[in-house]
Structures are given as structure tokens and as C-alpha cells.
Design a protein around this nucleic acid. Structure first.
Lengths: 136, 136
DNA sequence: CGGTATCCACATCGATACTG
DNA sequence: CAGTATCGATGTGGATACCG
């Protein structure tokens, strides 16, 4: 546990998808993180976000733009180019986001452990009624 | 703005419902906060949560219990009594939760302002295609 | 009191196809 | 390249009624 679970939240099967924290919708937090290093283009965002569909990415970007978290800059060129970047307000999200990430790095293993223990006991003990835990 | 928008996130119409932060599902974060001051009973939780339905509250509590964030203690009395309380692990959530709340208190007004400005310009300016923004 | 059991409305996400 | 347009699956929450 010296290495603090450098979890890659962009990995679909990554356990950090299990964190109780969510920034806005499913993708907004990741978009914020993708923009931390500077402006990014639409297509650039689609890569780390594991093939989020353009529709959903557009919706996410519009929502973030609407709320003043990012800017959308369109350059009149051919081929067209559009860049998204964090606003100062959007940058303020990085701080609490870091707090959430830190929590995950410190405690995710405990959460997973508790969850596993719960699954185990659910099958043996005295809960009056055990509901289904089947996962497809 | 000296008063930092002591927003009551438990109020249904409260603008803090607009914050980009969410702990788990819709209610989990509020439950954590409700338990900050000590153990609470099922019915006690329903009050500040503005009449969340028992079904949803049960689901929320089960999920938090499963993940080791809260404990469920049943006392064999008549009438039956059940208490929910934060585990040590659950208490660790209070710190990042505080970071999120602080963000809201500091920046919620800016977010709302940006949103309002966006609504305003959406009706007058040169976006190639203005989508509907109607809210029922 | 502390929940369950159904049923349903709605929002969100995804897949696919197409366009300025 | 940077989206838009549809359609459909899924799932999360709410309303209501009932139970040990």
C-alpha cells in the first residue's frame, strides 16, 4: 500500500469507477481532468474518454460551458478547429476534485474490502431476507 | 457576499442542487451529512431528506452499509428500533465532502451567474443552431 | 417503526447513421 | 473535424400500497 493505488479512472473496468464521488454527470469530471494540462480539441477528448459517443461528449461540453467551467473557441479554418479549455472558475474545481481523488487513493481498498465482505456474509448469515445480488 | 451562501442542500429548490458534486447517488451525500452528528433512526433520516421515499432511502442505506460507510444496528425491542451510524471509514468521507461544500459556498454564485448569462445570450446571438432550453 | 413490493415516469447513456 | 439526428436500452427515482 506504499503505492497509493494510482488508479486510472479512465479505464472502464477500473475500480475507481466505484468511488462515491461524481462531478456532474458521468463524464464531466473526466473532461475537467483532461483539460487540466491545457486546451484540448474535441477529438482529443474522445481518446482518453474511451470512446464516449460524440453526442454525449457534446452534451457534457455544453453543460460545462453553460455553467462557466470551460470555454469553447472556434477557429475559422479549414478543416475546422475547436478548442475547449478550463475557465478560472473551472480551475477551481480541480481542488475539490483532488480531494476526492485523494480519498479514493487512500480508502478505495477499504471500500472494496467492505463490499467483498458484505457479499460474503450475505450468503451465510441471518438477514431476514437476502435480496438478489446477481449481476449479469 | 460576506455571508457565504449558507445554502441548505436539503431544500428541494435550493440552488446547491446545481452543484457538480455528487456523493454516490442522489441521496448518499445527504445521508452522510445527516449522520455526522451521531446515530440516527430511519424515520429521523426521512425528515431532513424532504420525504425521500422509504424505498429509495432503504436502497441508499443498503449501498452505504455494503460499502462500509455506515453500520446498521437493530435493537430487539418493541417497537423495533434501528440505528444507522457512520463507520470510521464513513467519517473519512466528511473531509472531501467538506471540500465540495466549500467549493459550492465559494463558487455557486458564479456558476449560477454563468448559467444565467448563457441563457441570456442563447436567445440573441450567432450560434448556428440554438437548441431548445425549455424546462417544463 | 421500519421497512417491502409493484408499477411507472423520466433522465441518461449508448449505438448508429448522417452532415456543414 | 466537429459535430447533429434518431432510436432504443437501462437504470434511478418517485408514488402508492402493504407487511412483520
Amino acid at each position: 500500500m506504499t503505492e497509493p493505488l494510482r488508479a486510472d479512472m479512465f479505464q472502464p473496468g477500473c475500480p475507481s469507477n466505484v468511488t462515491p464521488f461524481q462531478i456532474g454527470d458521468k463524464w464531466a469530471g473526466m473532461v475537467i481532468l483532461c483539460l487540466e494540462g491545457g486546451p484540448r480539441r474535441f477529438s482529443q477528448l474522445r481518446v482518453p474518454l474511451r470512446r464516449v459517443t460524440p453526442k454525449v461528449l457534446t452534451e457534457t461540453l455544453r453543460a460545462l460551458e453553460r455553467d462557466g467551467m470551460i470555454t469553447r473557441t472556434r477557429y475559422d479554418e479549414v478543416p475546422p478547429r475547436v478548442e475547449y479549455a478550463l475557465t478560472p472558475l473551472g480551475r477551481t474545481l480541480l481542488e475539490p476534485l483532488a480531494a476526492c481523488r485523494e480519498w479514493a487513493e487512500r480508502h478505495l481498498a477499504e471500500l472494496l474490502e467492505a463490499r467483498a465482505a458484505y457479499e460474503r456474509t450475505a450468503y451465510e448469515t441471518s438477514r431476514t431476507d437476502v435480496f438478489e445480488r446477481s449481476r449479469s
